[in-house]
């Protein structure tokens, strides 16, 4: 689960000479929020986001309508993009969670991914959310159970043993330490093969564990 497998390859890219209004159009039409700005050979020069395209009202305060429209039509992406030190990129070879960490730390929504020094793709917060949904098995049919278990080695093996013995399969899931209950661990599993009652009946047999949610 590396960034290079989950990023959007061949993102829409624009040149620094593009008009800001054009960039705005491209974003709206394609329903995207980030555009890498590239030079010859897809070398990354900057990144443009929807917020960056907003012109601060203070810049316009003293101008009349004609001057404003001229200013807006003359604006180029070159002057508005994120660039230099502020531009944070990543390589395709890091894990998805590391990428998420970078995005959280920097409070950004998009990381251009470089391959051999040129743009190979981008990964955005939307990609992360899609990835989360996939991890949790949002795209498959099945029973979703949340089990609260003691935070000890061997507990989740018990669960998988039970599932395996019934011939069911786990199609997604994850774990998290239980909120407000130290020493416990919440595991979410998407199980395919049995119906709701069967799954609950089987998992309830496990000692020391508790099913807190089934849907």
């Amino acid at each position: 689960m590396l960034v290079k497998d989950y990023m959007t390859r061949h993102p829409i890219m624009i040149s620094p000479e593009t008009d800001a209004s054009e960039a705005q159009n491209i974003m709206t039409e394609n329903n995207i929020r980030h555009l890498p700005v590239v030079g010859d050979g897809k070398r990354l020069l900057g990144l443009i986001t929807r917020e960056k395209l907003h012109v601060p009202p203070s810049d316009l305060g003293s101008l009349n309508v004609w001057e404003i429209s001229r200013l807006l039509s003359d604006l180029k992406v070159k002057g508005m993009m994120v660039k230099g030190k502020d531009l944070i990129t990543t390589e395709g070879d890091i894990t998805i969670e590391d990428a998420a960490k970078i995005m959280l730390e920097e409070k950004i929504g998009c990381l251009p991914v470089l391959e051999d020094g040129v743009v190979g793709g981008i990964i955005t917060d939307t990609d992360m959310l899609a990835h989360l949904a996939h991890l949790m098995g949002a795209t498959v049919q099945g029973v979703r159970v949340t089990i609260r278990m003691p935070d000890k080695v061997g507990e989740s093996a018990k669960v998988t043993d039970v599932i395996a013995s019934h011939g069911w399969g786990i199609y997604g899931g994850g774990g998290h330490d239980a909120p407000k209950q130290p020493g416990y661990w919440d595991a979410v599993l998407k199980i395919q093969g049995g119906d709701k009652e069967e799954v609950v009946a089987a998992l309830e047999q496990i000692e020391g564990q508790e099913i807190i949610d089934v849907r």
Binding site: T8, H10, I12, N30, N31, I32, T126, D127, A130, A133, H134, A138, T139
Partner: peptide, 11 residues
């Protein structure tokens, strides 16, 4: 693979 995120067509 059915993807949740729908990318716009390339062409």
């Amino acid at each position: 693979m059915n993807n949740l995120k729908k990318a716009p067509p390339v062409l």
